[in-house]
Design a binder for these strands. Structure first.
Length: 672
DNA sequence: GAGCACTGC
């Protein structure tokens, strides 16, 4: 079973009965007449599955062009494509196909193509006007992901060169005016009139959803212990409400596990003849198999109680939920441009989020939502969560925009402009990595190649400088291993067994060489087999993904004309002569320094680290790092994250202080 | 001796 199979929503309604069917003619007329259409449609309106079909029937593919429909998530792109292929009675990959990283299920006959927004941006690197497409639909634009915001900016630029292109922005909330205004403003030739805010550029079309009413309940007094309150609410609902499953929104894994324990503790106190409660966790860190339980129908006389993170707000839909309990919090990522460190902190949700969460109770019948905060507190919430582009490290974004030909970042049309400080910091980093020259132009070939690699800028720099260190094959592996999301190690009840397994691969100089060791063992001794992974407490899925990522990165390098002869680099004796004097392990650490010099730190007597930049910042080695209980002097790290009270570094390797000045003279010249 | 919400190339 693949990832996608378990997420197919049970929504098999005849297409003609969907709310959107009534709007078919109006939609086709608007899209024919205006370059930009903003489509407001709630979940269940059928916009994602039906509109591309209407457009195909309406002749938008007749000249051999394609209809693109972007999705923010891989699962959405694949499941929607499957559904539409079924409805059109064609084989997936023929008239209807999808394209996501590592999977291109399209062919010469494809007319409707579902793809992730990130991938469409990548296509624009090769085809800057996206000339293969007659219509581009950006779905779920209200989520304001980094890549959909970038895509909208790029589409606005393309539109001026391709007046015949049709853009459909689809959104579930009432921010439609913002999207339309974005495309209209600065368009001097056709200033909008008061009567028609979209002028001749665009129109808004609104489609009713298929939601049932949801009763909202607030607390009368605020509470500090929402976990306790949530548990009490569960038992109140269970005792007094009719059947229907319960969904609780919490912030993270730890909280979810605590809640489930608290509930399990109280289950024995239920009356014997009462219905049973079945508590289930749902968060991204679970394997897909573990996630599947929440989709299964509960046994008879059982009420499902799902404790979920934000994953249940938009990414995953569970049918049969009649009650939602909303803690009012979500963990959000933020980026501090001063320290260049990302933080992950529990933050109050926005009104839009709270509304979306409540709506999860009304998908199959009328429901109830219990908010664990007061109505006054709700009224004080932000209208919407700040878009990602305002709280992220923008170095990868700017690198990509530059590669798309957008040179003047300050003047680029962002839907919401990011803070200047974030832009400045990103430009500085890209300059010090050699991706930009002193005029902030992309360098050739380094900057352009860095933008094309599907890696962060620092890691991309390492990979591209690896040939000069004679460690390309090794750096390919390290890049693949460090850019994996998810754990390489299986968490195990026995911490000792886990630690012993880990120690077998440990390399004194640090985590990167250890990761290299793990990968090499996996492909040689382990023969890429699941059984071997199990014996060594390794996550087979993560390891297989590393193999895919490595292959893809290798293909990029080959396209750049960089020779990736594996035998050359894995055999130190045949490595380039210039490096004969240095052992392979040292060359790898030097290479890491050439990309991660901005992530250098020195270990203090107490075992914590200080960076060069911000002396007062205390960094702790993450307990999963080799450096957790080892001595070191200078190190570079590839990941840093602040959670709760402490700031942790993971993937840490020892370096020499002198290397910093050697590989980043500009960056370290005037510093102590 | 601790833990990372969620995406994406």
């Amino acid at each position: 079973m693949t990832d996608t199979d378990c997420f197919i929503p049970a929504l098999h309604k005849p297409a003609s009965l969907l709310p959107i069917a009534r709007h078919k003619e109006a939609l086709l007329y608007t899209i024919e007449t205006f370059p930009v259409t903003v489509l407001i449609g709630q979940t269940g309106s059928g916009k994602t599955t039906q509109l591309p079909q209407y457009l195909e029937q309406g002749g938008w593919c007749n000249d051999g062009k394609l209809i693109a429909a972007t999705q923010p998530r891989r699962v959405a792109a694949t499941t929607v494509a499957k559904r539409v292929a079924e409805e059109m009675r064609c084989q997936l990959g023929q008239e209807v196909g999808y394209s996501i990283r590592f999977e291109d299920v399209t062919s010469a006959s494809t007319r409707i193509k579902f793809l992730t927004d990130g991938l469409l941006l990548r296509e624009a690197l090769v085809d800057p006007l996206l000339s293969r497409y007659s219509v581009i639909m950006v779905d779920e634009a209200h989520e304001r992901s980094l890549s959909s915001d970038m895509l909208l900016g790029v589409l606005k630029k393309i539109r001026k060169r391709r007046p015949e292109l049709r853009i459909v922005v689809s959104s579930a909330t009432l921010q439609a005016e913002d999207f339309l205004r974005f495309f209209v403003v600065d368009d001097a030739e056709t200033a909008p009139s008061a009567a028609e805010p979209g002028g001749s550029i665009g129109r808004i079309i609104s489609i009713e959803g298929r939601a049932f009413p949801v009763d909202i309940h607030y607390l009368t007094d605020s509470c500090d212990e929402y976990l306790e309150r949530a548990v009490r609410t569960v038992f109140d609902i269970h005792a007094s409400e009719p059947e229907g499953d319960i969904l609780i929104f919490l912030t993270g894994r730890e909280e979810i596990e605590t809640a489930i324990e608290m509930i399990a503790d109280r289950i024995p106190s239920l009356r014997n003849d009462a219905d049973k409660l079945l508590p289930l966790p749902l968060y991204a860190g679970l394997t897909t198999e573990q996630q599947m339980y929440v989709f299964e129908t509960a046994p008879e006389n059982h009420r499902k109680l799902i404790c979920a993170t934000n994953i249940a707000e938009a990414s995953v839909t569970i049918d049969g939920i009649a009650f939602v309990i909303d803690s009012g919090f979500v963990k959000l990522r933020a980026y501090n441009p001063v320290t260049a460190i990302e933080t992950l902190t529990a933050t109050p949700v926005s009104k839009a989020s709270a509304t979306q969460r409540a709506g999860r109770a009304g998908r199959t019948k009328a429901g109830k939502c219990y908010r664990l905060y007061t109505e006054a507190a709700f009224n004080k919430l932000e209208a919407a969560t700040a878009p990602e582009i305002q709280r992220s490290n923008l170095a990868p974004t700017i690198l990509q925009l530059k590669a798309l030909g957008i040179d003047n970042i300050a003047r680029f049309d962002f839907l919401t402009p990011p803070p200047a400080e974030l832009i400045v910091r990103a430009l500085e980093l890209l300059y010090s990595l050699g991706a930009l020259d002193e005029y902030a132009k992309l360098t050739v070939p380094l900057g352009i190649r860095m933008a094309e690699l599907a890696l962060g800028p620092m890691l991309a720099k390492c990979l591209l400088s690896a040939p000069t260190f004679g460690c390309l094959s090794e750096m390919l592996t390290i890049a693949a291993m460090t850019s994996l999301q998810g754990n390489i190690w299986f968490s195990h009840d026995s911490k000792k067994a886990e630690e012993t397994a880990r120690r077998k691969f440990a390399v004194e100089e640090g985590d990167h060489l250890t990761l290299l060791n793990v990968y090499q063992a996996f492909v040689t001794k382990g023969k890429k087999e699941a059984k071997w992974c199990q014996q060594h407490y390794l996550n087979f899925k993560s390891m297989s993904r590393a193999v895919s990522i490595r292959n893809q990165l290798r293909r990029y390098l080959e396209r750049f004309g960089i020779d990736v002869s594996e035998s050359l680099a894995t055999n130190p004796t045949t490595a380039s002569k210039a490096h004969d004097s240095q052992p392979l392990h040292e060359r790898i650490r030097r290479c890491l320094t050439s990309g991660f010099f901005a992530h250098a730190a020195r270990m203090q007597a107490d075992g914590t680290f200080r960076t060069v930049d911000s002396g007062s910042l205390v960094l702790h080695a993450h307990p999963s790092s080799l450096m957790f209980n080892r001595k070191a002097d200078w190190v570079v790290f590839t990941e840093v994250m602040e959670t709760g009270e402490k700031t942790y570094v993971r993937d840490v390797s020892k370096i020499e202080k002198g290397w910093l000045v050697e590989y980043a003279p500009e960056y370290y010249r005037v510093r102590p």
